[in-house]
């Protein structure tokens, strides 16, 4: 589904990603871990098409297409979804309105009929319930006045509505209490399936107790330096990142 080859990316002239290689197949859940500043969020943002990052080398093939050649909205319509680390507050724009417009943009892209207000509302009702998001929030401006946990649940809610093929979760667990973490994880687990893949960027191993990954990768200094199964996450939890960084330094 996704193949990242030797991806290099800069921000303001500083190289953040220094040759990332990663293959994700349909049905798999991959976790990207790593110390602060290792490039985890940059990778997530580059995949979604944020233009503050400049890709200088490498390629990303998604479903046989050159992902980097697509606009952010085209990527979304092709089935990519990014759950933001810091969801943006947008005053004056009603969440339901925006989501209906987004969903219909995607449906139109695929030649499907647009959903009318009634169908949309019944869809939303179900999905909001699945992440225990108060429906009243959906009639408010996007993320405005939402608590941290509500913002993150709103991301997962949007994901549930848009039903992406590849979902990138950028530190969706950070700052959540255990209840919110369970709800968010449950939302993700409900969507897991053989035709869908997840790239879960996290700083904390705890999330992976709830969203059990098939693969764990450690990103250090803009490169994936170690990959393994879910047990790697536990080892990182126990031993920290220093040993991986040392191994990487020795290897290079």
């Amino acid at each position: 589904m996704l193949e990242i080859r030797n991806l290099h990316a800069n921000v303001d002239g500083h190289e953040i990603l220094r040759g990332v290689n990663l293959t994700v197949n349909a049905g798999e859940v991959h976790s990207i871990m790593g110390p602060n500043g290792s490039g985890k969020s940059t990778l997530a943002q580059v995949l979604a098409g944020r233009d503050t990052y400049e890709v200088t080398e490498g390629e990303v093939i998604y479903e046989g297409k050159d992902l980097l050649d697509l606009e952010p909205d085209e990527r979304a319509c092709e089935g990519l979804f990014l759950a933001f680390q810091y969801p943006v507050e947008i005053p004056g724009v009603n969440t339901n309105y925006f989501l209906r417009a987004a969903l219909n943009a995607k449906r139109k892209y695929h030649g499907q009929e647009e959903l009318d207000a009634m169908d949309f509302l019944s869809l939303v009702k179900d999905k909001a319930a699945s992440v225990q998001l108060n429906e009243k929030l959906l009639n408010r401006a996007i993320n405005e006045g939402f608590s941290g946990g509500e913002k993150k649940r709103n991301e997962i809610f949007q994901m549930a509505v848009l039903e992406p093929k590849l979902a990138v979760l950028d530190e969706t667990d950070s700052g959540l209490d255990i209840d919110a973490l369970r709800i968010v994880s449950e939302g993700v687990n409900q969507l897991r399936g053989s035709d869908r893949a997840f790239l879960v960027v996290t700083h904390y191993q705890r999330l992976l107790e709830y969203i059990v990954p098939d693969f764990v990768h450690v990103l250090v200094n803009g490169q994936i330096v170690k990959s393994g199964g879910k047990e790697l996450a536990l080892e990182l939890e126990e031993r920290g990142y220093a040993w991986v960084e040392q191994e990487a330094a020795v290897a290079s």
């Binding site: 098409g49 944020r50 606009e71 979804f81 969801p87 925006f98 417009a101 987004a102 848009l162």
Partner: peptide
């Protein structure tokens, strides 16, 4: 970017904002 990342065109995102 947030709006675009959900599938809205740049023009639609601009108008909506």
């Amino acid at each position: 970017f947030y709006l675009q990342s959900r599938g809205m065109s740049r023009e639609a995102a601009r108008s909506l904002l």
